[in-house]
Design a protein around this nucleic acid. Structure first.
Lengths: 180, 180
DNA sequence: CCGTTCCTGAACAGTCATGTTCAGAACCGT
DNA sequence: ACGGTTCTGAACATGACTGTTCAGGAACGG
């Protein structure tokens, strides 16, 4: 994938997140490319959306890799993965909210597969006694995007300083709202 | 609002959540009503979506009322409100994911206003020493839908027993993932 | 029983995004 | 300078949904 292609996908994501009803003409214009060219790369609108989804998931996967989830203690790994995924906010929003992705089996399957490293991490945390074992592992993972994404939203709104976000998310996830 | 109107809105929500691209003809058919009648009640598609949103928020508001948030201890109130909002899953999904609602100021304003009772509750919890005070109140509220909604999803998938959901959500929110 | 109200089915115009095609221009590397 | 590749602008067909209208029929209440 060339640099321009990445740039195009990023622009497309930005446009389609900002105004989901944008036409392909709008997307092409924003990306500084003709509609014909856009169409040459992505034959249909759906194909573009799917490509966007895959690119977003590529980034998530890369973040997981970079976070070295299998190294060190689990809270530390959690902190790293949170730090690396919060900036992916717009991509996550796209993945979570774009409803036409729901009936692309290829995408939904990968969404599920994408959770595997986190499941492993939770599992590891349980074995090391760093995470509670009285609740199902999948639950911890399922409720994750719902905690990371609001953090991004808060940053975008200016309510939250980017550097504060990971700590906030991490302590929420680990310790909850009750006083110690 | 008559019973039939409520039924129509509920059917419409179900259809539009299941297949967001459904046409008004599909919605009308599913509701057992002619497209003309549907159009008489809701002049435009957008008007229907807005009505759906308002009805969903009515239900959330009602749940908050029924949960008597200002009575008793705060964890108890939290449990009640979680119990009452989890079944609203499909409505919450609609509110969270339907992106054409984003540029209806009336709806976004009410979305924000809807959080006020919860903010009060968190505030009360802090004063009573039942919630931590080292993190902003709005954060606790912002990350709430992200925890409640996955619970509904898990129930819908059959991964989670409906009666287990409130406890799971509550302990996650209060105590987090770390062992005591 | 009658009049009002509401719902229905059908048809229609308008709009708009999509997908397709093609000839020419711009841009490469050689 | 040249041949090939890529991008461009424009035009076109298509299809779908929306919003609108209207005459007839069903339901309902008085």
């Amino acid at each position: 994938m060339t640099v321009q292609e990445r740039a195009l996908l990023e622009t497309a994501t930005r446009v389609l997140v900002t105004s989901p009803a944008a036409s392909l003409a709008d997307v092409a214009a924003a990306a500084g490319v003709s509609r014909t060219t856009l169409h040459a790369r992505y034959p249909t609108r759906q194909a573009l959306l799917v490509a966007l989804a895959h690119e977003a998931m590529d980034l998530v996967e890369a973040a997981y890799g970079e976070a070295r989830l299998d190294e060190g203690d689990v809270p530390g790994a959690l902190r790293r993965v949170i730090e690396l995924t919060v900036p992916l906010g717009p991509r996550l929003e796209f993945l979570l909210r774009e409803r036409s992705l729901d009936d692309v089996p290829e995408v939904t399957a990968r969404t599920i597969a994408l959770d595997a490293p986190l499941l492993d991490l939770v599992e590891r945390g349980r074995q090391r006694g760093e995470l509670r074992t009285d609740r199902p592992s999948w639950w911890r993972v399922a409720s994750r995007p719902g905690t990371v994404y609001p953090a991004w939203e808060a940053i975008a709104d200016g309510r939250l300083a980017p550097r504060d976000a990971p700590g906030l998310v991490l302590t929420s996830v680990l310790h909850g709202a009750a006083p110690r």
